[in-house]
Computed example of a mutant assay.
Amino acid sequence: MNSQPISSDVYQQAGEWLERLDNGPLDKLSKRRFINWVDAHPTHKQAFESMLATWSSAALERALIDAQQNITLKERIRYTPPVRWWQAAVLCTAVIVGVITWQFSSPQPTLIIHQYATDNGEVRSVTLEDSSVLTLGAASDVYVRLSDNHRLVNLKQGAAYFDVTSNKQRPFEVKVGSASVVAVGTEFNIDRGQYFTDVVVHEGAVEVTGGPDESPLLLKAGEQVRITGRTLGDIRPFDIRRTLDWRSGWLELDNASLHYLVERLNRQSAKAIRVDAPALNDLRVAGRFRLNEPQQALSLLAEAYGLSVNETPEYYTISRHP
């Protein structure tokens, strides 16, 4: 079969897959996406193999082999390896992967894939290709995949505010672990913590689901819900005009746990903040704390609740007074 012209977009997508595979084996969903992408058009396989020929990586080879697990091969192509042994091993794997067909639905052409992350104390605003605006809070990490009929964001950690461009043919979905938040055109905030995730809708409405087999919940502007694992809490109202979130630089709490406060201050602090006794994490606190000045917030916390804050070159430690 003669080679077909390959667009620059396809080469970019092939390079992104190579980088992801070079970071180690893919998870189950990523394997499906990779196989769907390879199978979507002959030029995808051509671009992937041509770039793979100059990419020497044992980790990449292992990831490609892993991607074949539990997938049915339709056929195997006869292959003559090049002179260098590492190219032979890796390219043979690529040829096999190129003829794999995933056994589920037909693939969706990928438009663009990105990963965005922020450091401690950093806030970043990104305009996506569909004109939606994603604002990342400090110490946050997201993976974005836009296809012709679906917009998907995986919030791996931290907080993000979404200003979604309306498009009924391309739902906008945010995955947070097993839970998902689906919108068409709206503005909402998601804050993912260690033990639960808070979803707050500022404009429009979103559909929140705790897991693939759970019943969805409709959340409208001026409402919020807390997700714990696969469990959705009760819908609670909030005043959009008065409620402060991380974008303001302030954190306003009413009967929240000390763990909740410390987790969010740690996203801003250059030094790690830790609590010396597990039971102290459950202490209930309230007040307004300036996020970008964690040392000042800790001083106010200590004064209001009779705590001690000890500082070393590496971290702050919160403890009860002796």
Rank of each mutant, 00 (worst) to 15 (best):
S8I: 11
D9P: 02
Q12F: 13
E16D: 10
L18Q: 06
R20V: 03
D27N: 11
L29P: 08
D39R: 08
H41T: 08
Q46A: 09
Q46H: 11
S50E: 15
S57P: 08
A59N: 12
E61I: 00
R62M: 12
I71L: 11
T80F: 13
P81Q: 09
P82K: 00
V95N: 06
G98I: 05
Q103C: 03
D119K: 14
L128V: 02
S140P: 04
D141A: 02
D148M: 06
S166T: 14
Q169M: 09
S180D: 10
A183R: 00
A183I: 00
A183E: 07
E187L: 06
N189V: 03
N189L: 07
R192S: 12
F196N: 13
F196T: 11
D198N: 14
D198Y: 09
D198R: 14
V206Q: 05
E207M: 09
K220Y: 08
A221Y: 02
E223F: 09
V225S: 05
T228C: 09
G229E: 09
R241P: 09
T243R: 12
L244S: 13
L258I: 00
V262F: 08
Q268V: 00
S269R: 02
R274S: 14
L291N: 02
L298H: 03
L300N: 08
L301H: 01
Y305L: 01
G306K: 01
G306W: 01
S308H: 14
P313S: 05
I318N: 01
H321L: 14
